[in-house]
């Protein structure tokens, strides 16, 4: 479903992605972690073309990312959830969710709203359809953002630190939605430090440092017997409490 081969990216002289090769199969849930600045956000932002890269090849659902013309089509198949939600503040929750289905998928308004309502109910926001983003809590906004991506019926969902901007008591409401999605068989790549989430649903955990993939392992092995010193060092820092 997602296939990186030898992908390199520089920000000026900074080598932010170093020779990345990685394959994610359909239905797989992959968690990406690593210290800040390790390139994990950049990695998943490449998958829907939000970040261009300089060399290597990236195939997503059979589409070569170097083909900029196919990008819009591809993006409509790949959902992306941001750390800062990025809802449209001038639109209600329901309008946020139905905007792309109406204008990209060309669904009729009634049909898009039906789909949107069902998704907002699914993420537990049946009573917030007509609310504007600023009237919602962070956790609620992030759930609207997830529904907004799902409303396009994507084949892949990407999450870029979806709970990092949330107050602690709101993290679980968002993670619950993501766990549900993983259990339904969605192909997911999730940048997160929520190790409970990784243990529960990840098929693999990837550890990145300084633009390179250091270690890839199933969650059990990743947490109990990491192979690399740098992984152990990182885990000891985030798991000590």
């Amino acid at each position: 479903m997602i296939e990186f081969s030898g992908v390199n990216k520089w920000f000026g002289s900074l080598h932010v992605l170093q020779d990345i090769s990685l394959t994610v199969a359909k239905g797989e849930v992959v968690v990406v972690c690593g210290p800040s600045g390790s390139g994990k956000s950049t990695l998943i932002r490449c998958i829907n073309g939000l970040e261009p890269f300089e060399s290597g090849r990236l195939l997503v659902d059979g589409t070569d990312l170097s083909n900029r013309k196919a990008l819009l089509k591809l993006r409509s198949e790949v959902g992306f959830v941001f750390q800062s939600f990025n809802l449209y503040p001038h639109k209600t929750a329901l309008e946020n969710v139905t905007l792309a289905p109406i204008h990209v998928r060309r669904l009729g308004r009634a049909q898009a709203e039906e789909r949107g309502r069902a998704l907002l109910e699914k993420v537990g926001l049946a009573d917030k359809m007509g609310s504007y983003p600023h009237q919602l809590s962070g956790g609620q906004q992030q759930r609207v953002a997830i529904a907004r991506s799902l409303c396009m019926q994507p084949k892949i969902m990407l999450f870029d630190e979806p709970t990092s901007a949330l107050d602690p008591e709101m993290i679980n409401e968002v993670l619950d939605v993501m766990v549900g999605l993983a259990r339904e068989g969605m192909t997911m790549m999730v940048v997160t430090h929520e190790m409970g989430f990784a243990r529960k649903v990840a098929d693999r955990v990837i550890f990145m440092d300084r633009g390179a993939i250091v270690e890839t392992a199933p969650p059990e092995r990743f947490f109990t017997a990491p192979a690399h010193a740098r992984t152990r060092d990182f885990l000891s820092k985030i798991l000590q409490h």
Binding site: S76, A100, V104, A145
Partner: peptide, 30 residues
């Protein structure tokens, strides 16, 4: 208009003109 909103539009497949018309301009006008 924050860049993130434009990226949210991009990642749902909205074209440049659609992002301008549906997301950026209505808010910029206000």
């Amino acid at each position: 208009i924050p860049r993130g909103q434009v990226e949210a539009g991009m990642s749902t497949g909205l074209s440049y003109m659609q992002r301008m018309r549906l997301i950026v301009l209505p808010q910029a006008l206000r």
